[in-house]
Design a protein around this nucleic acid. Structure first.
Lengths: 115, 115
DNA sequence: CTGCTAGATTGAAGTTCGTCGATCAGCAGC
DNA sequence: GCTGCTGATCGACGAACTTCAATCTAGCAG
């Protein structure tokens, strides 16, 4: 498997689709799943990380430590959390891991907060 | 002041408007502010609370303890967090506090994640 | 095979968060 | 006044989170 995160992203599976927060009564499992994805975004470092990846379409982990001003293990930790939430996917090519955003996932989140 | 949370909501002020996460490089202060609002939503209990309030347009605190299966102090804690994030506003009338959602705030959040 | 490098994992320290019991503040009715 | 009820605040405890140093894994070059 080239994309190491593939299996993990798969565990996310859910569309968190269906009903939006303001329209649905929102069941407990739905709330837990949605909260999980929101929690992945609810961190300044990860928000900046995501916008950095989005800005360049594909970014190497090593190019994140500088702009984020965080150590290599910390950056790795945050990329993993975003990847587990399905918001980014990583592709390991050679010695480097390249990250890109998953627009559909962001769109689903957007819809979940929907008006 | 009838609406006790008015001043607190004011401290939020920000539109978290401007650029979306995927379009902007996202400055540190912007990331912190956006993360603050997202963190308010990144909890299953608060998501269900929000959807309960949204479903009935206006809800009394005492009608939340049951459905949320949490103690009164805990419910009060969560309403405060959502109110501080500007996502709901509370209006104290007599012995009861009535909560309603702030759709504009949710919309702003939605746009911040915007495609 | 040996060394070098990029990234993931582990372990620990410090902080923040969710929860509830107990208490405090304010309103309504007697 | 006093009593009862709703909701906010305080204090404490356990769980989860962020961070980094140290270590481990894996690919590339010689």
């Amino acid at each position: 498997m080239t994309t190491r995160q593939a299996t993990k992203a798969a565990t996310v599976e859910g569309d968190l689709c269906c009903a939006s927060v303001v329209e649905a009564p929102l069941s407990e499992p739905e709330a837990v799943e949605l909260a999980r994805v929101l929690a992945a975004l609810a961190d300044p470092v990860r928000l900046r990380l995501l916008s950095l990846v989005a800005a360049q379409d594909e970014v190497c982990s090593c190019d994140l430590e500088g702009p984020l001003d965080r150590s290599q293990p910390t950056v790795s930790h945050h990329t993993k959390i975003l990847a587990d939430a399905g918001l980014i996917v990583g592709d390991r090519r050679g010695r480097w891991t390249w990250w890109k955003v998953v627009p559909e996932r962001l769109g689903a989140l957007q819809r979940a907060l929907g008006a």
